[in-house]
Simulated assay, not measured.
Amino acid sequence: MKKVFLPIEAIEAKIDDLPVVQRVLVLALTVLALAAAFYYFKYDPQSKRIRQLRTSIQNEETRLATLKKYAAESEKLAQEVEKAQEEFAAMLKLLPHQREIPALLETVSQIGAQEGLENLLFQPLPEILHEFHATIPVRLDLVGRYHQLGLFLDKISRLGRIIQVDSMALKRRSDSSLQVSCNFSTYRFLEEHERKKPEPKKK
């Protein structure tokens, strides 16, 4: 069967011969056909593509916002860790290690001598262990003047280590000097192997 092709002029002539109502109807159908073709072959695919792109952009914006939030939190945590490390290092300076204790106690004794105090007794007592540190009590008996004692206490308070005077008893001697019986404590940081391990929980 042969296909019949009508020239444009013939089609236009046929349309011109139609009544006005039919010509309007043909024009309307032609416009609708072109609009339908435009919608299905051009507008609808582009519209779907635009919706896909908008969804992708929204997802990427959400992902970017989440990553920025994590980055800000990570930076904040890093700053907090750095600050905690600095504070821990500062605390460690106040708590000498075991090898520094003899030198610290010797310094305390030397300060007493420098201020003219006579050292009658300098006796470190057994350590008291805690979870992370040890308390080192010391018994110290001195003889001297009141102002010498004041200078001594002032200087040991500035040593940069924690030294706490627990008790002090003063006794006036016949030569108007003071005999001081003093108990003070210093502290040291426990090494890892010295710390008490927690007892396993009983089942």
Rank of each mutant, 00 (worst) to 15 (best):
I15E: 08
Q114L: 12
F189R: 05
Q110V: 08
R63K: 15
V26P: 01
I57A: 15
K202H: 08
P200A: 11
N183F: 12
S56K: 15
S157F: 07
Q148T: 02
Q110T: 11
Q46K: 08
G144V: 04
P137V: 13
K93N: 13
I50K: 07
R51F: 12
R63C: 03
A134Q: 05
D17W: 03
P198R: 06
L32Q: 04
Q85S: 07
H130D: 07
I11A: 09
S174R: 13
Q164E: 15
L6N: 07
R188W: 02
M91V: 11
L94C: 00
T66P: 00
S176V: 09
L190R: 08
P126L: 02
R188N: 01
K48E: 15
V21Q: 11
P124L: 02
E100G: 05
D17C: 08
H193I: 07
L77I: 11
S47R: 11
I156G: 00
T107V: 02
A37C: 10
S167M: 08
A13G: 12
V165Q: 11
R158T: 10
K197C: 04
T62P: 00
V138M: 05
V81H: 03
N119C: 02
S157M: 03
K196H: 08
Q79S: 13
P126G: 05
K68M: 12
S109E: 08
E131W: 04
I128R: 15
I15P: 01
P126T: 04
S176W: 09
L151R: 13
R173H: 07
Y43S: 06
K76R: 11
R195F: 00
